Amino acid sequence: MVKVGLTGGIGSGKSEVARRLAARGAVVIDADKIAREVVEPGTSGLALIEAAFGPQVLREDGSLDREKLGQIVFADSGKLARLNEIVHPRVGERVAELQRAAPADAVVVYDVPLLAENNLAPMYDLVVVVDASDRTRLARLTGLRGMAEQDAVARIKAQATREDRLKIADIVVPNEGDLDDLDARVEEVWARIRRHRTADA
């Protein structure tokens, strides 16, 4: 098994790279998706969040109001730590479960937005960083996602710098062009990952 950490700043195209690696046979484990799953209605994670932060963090349909919860925890480091105590172990358990279910010779790609911020690079055999300039990312966030410019700038600034991500990269995927360019780059990355798997076998 080859464990690949995949990261990139918001608007870099990381999700597009993850989709293309999955299409080539990688087992993709999406940390953000799992973090949402472990707090869905009916889970112990959501019950603990309600107990810790009150019923005001739930929507009328019983699902988590992420915006309301964010306003509470990002203004109070103690509350953020409490939320992380609830969510992180559940994410870790689910990731381990998915990893155990993967074939022994699989390429497992962990899609982790905050890989650099949380110093997780040592956990992986290879770290792939999807890279685009801040200007390109800002244009994508405002143009393709319809985000207000000041919100997009704030999101970019809240993450690791481009330089910090590039420092931990074993493989860099430049993504300033179109999707055809990206396909060609991902094909090169896939070939390199497979060579790594063969070398380790």
Results as ranks from 00 to 15, higher is better:
Glu40Ile: 04
Glu40Phe: 09
Pro41Val: 10
Gly42Ser: 08
Gly42Pro: 11
Gly45Ile: 08
Gly45Asp: 11
Gly45Phe: 12
Phe53Arg: 15
Val57Thr: 14
Glu60Gln: 14
Asp61Cys: 12
Gly62Ala: 13
Leu64Arg: 12
Arg66Glu: 13
Arg66Phe: 11
Leu69Met: 09
Leu69Ile: 03
Gln71Glu: 12
Gln71Ile: 04
Gln71Met: 09
Ile72Val: 14
Ala75Asn: 12
Asp76Cys: 01
Asp76Phe: 00
Lys79Gly: 06
Arg82Leu: 15
Leu83Ala: 08
Leu83Pro: 10
Glu85Asp: 15
Val87Phe: 05
His88Asn: 09
Pro89Thr: 09
Arg90Met: 14
Glu93Leu: 14
Glu93Pro: 05
Arg94Ala: 09
Arg94Phe: 11
Glu97Gly: 02
Asp105Trp: 06
Asp105Phe: 02
Asp105Lys: 10
Asp105His: 09
Val109Ala: 09
Tyr110Asn: 14
Asp111Gly: 05
Val112Glu: 05
Leu115Arg: 05
Ala116Tyr: 02
Pro122Arg: 01
Met123Glu: 14
Val127Trp: 00
Val127Lys: 02
Ala132Asp: 10
Ala132Ile: 09
Ala132Lys: 12
Ser133Leu: 08
Asp134Val: 08
Arg135His: 10
Arg137Trp: 07
Arg140Lys: 07
Arg140Ala: 03
Arg145Ala: 04
Met147Glu: 00
Glu149Gln: 12
Asp151Tyr: 02
Ala152Gln: 03
Ala154Lys: 15
Arg155His: 01
Ala158Trp: 02
Ala158His: 03
Ala158Arg: 04
Ala160His: 00
Arg162Cys: 03
Glu163Ile: 00
Glu163Val: 05
Arg165Leu: 14
Leu166Thr: 07
Ile168Tyr: 07
Ala169Glu: 01
Asp170Lys: 02
Pro174Glu: 11
Pro174Ile: 04
Asn175Trp: 12
Gly177Met: 01
Ala184Gly: 08
Ala184Trp: 00
